[in-house]
Design a protein around this nucleic acid. Structure first.
Lengths: 165, 165
DNA sequence: TACGATCTTCACGTTCACGTCAACTTCTTG
DNA sequence: CAAGAAGTTGACGTGAACGTGAAGATCGTA
């Protein structure tokens, strides 16, 4: 597992202590405000292994990067836009982590056979997610189509009314 | 409020006792099986004013019509496909009830002015719902687009790999 | 370095959408 | 009409996703 992925999994990591606090380090309250949730929610996400702050101070205070905030926003999107529960979301974001790991491995890999294997795994992960989303999108579009048909029917009736007073 | 709407709101109604049990009357267990939920869930939906059985026996047993089942399925769709909570769904289905009331009023109405007013109200209700759905659909399609772009990129890399071994 | 704002970790409370058990009644079928 | 299946109300239990203190440690600024 990569360094970044380990941090996001909330693991201590084998590296030299806690990750360095970058220049864009936000405190939990600031990050929460940006995401639009409570600090409790951010701690809860970390508890579930969804989003771990990429830095911590010596005293143990969480420090969130912009990428962390983006990740939180993504979780919210998957939650409310897609209707996934946090457990499903964990699966999804971990798959996405794995994909960005694979990207790095891809650049490092020399042998075409290895590259092919990496690509295959990434494609499988991506396709799986795509299927889930596609399913929802299709049914939602159908729903929207119904509503639009009704709206059209109303407009039709309206013009008919206006035509013959 | 119309007869049907009163029944679905779970009100006793001023009519001559409970609604007659039609030929297509399903027991709660059968209706639940068709919808794919538990009997508890159907009672809960009634409790919230979402779906009330259109008939009851003298003894007080609920009898669901096919329309009731369809209504339950609609609730499930709004719940899982759209991600609305049951309170929002109550607002939506009540708006839809109001629309079908308006349809009846429309046919009964003689004066064009009255018809125009009815139509306006129906259009407002429909547009409101349509906006909510449209918003979700747009963002979901964008999400899907990202995934498809990635998939295309993977396919591209794959063919490049196969081309030059 | 003092101090108030912000953070930390428990730990229990809350809301939603039901699940589940109990005690009893009703329905249907032989 | 007996009996078992299914239904009724009522009340309490449950998992998810947090909310809400409590008690204390830490951070940033004067």
């Amino acid at each position: 597992m990569s360094r970044a992925a380990a941090a996001h999994a909330g693991l201590p990591g084998a590296g030299p202590g806690p990750a360095p606090v970058g220049p864009a380090a936000l405190r939990i309250g600031e990050a929460a405000a940006l995401v639009g949730v409570s600090t409790r929610t951010l701690r809860y996400y970390q508890e579930l292994g969804l989003v771990a702050p990429s830095g911590i101070t010596r005293g143990g205070a969480r420090r969130y990067s912009e990428a962390d905030v983006a990740r939180c926003l993504r979780v919210r999107e998957l939650q409310h836009l897609m209707g996934f529960d946090l457990d499903e979301i964990r699966t999804i974001v971990h798959a996405e982590d794995r994909i960005s790991e694979l990207r790095a491995e891809w650049f490092a890999a020399q042998k075409p056979a290895r590259r092919r294997a990496i690509l295959r795994e990434a494609m499988v992960l991506n396709d799986r997610l795509q299927d889930q989303v596609h399913d929802k999108a299709v049914r939602l579009d159908a729903f929207l189509g119904e509503l639009e048909a009704k709206a059209a029917r109303y407009r039709q009736l309206s013009t008919e009314l206006d035509a013959e007073p």
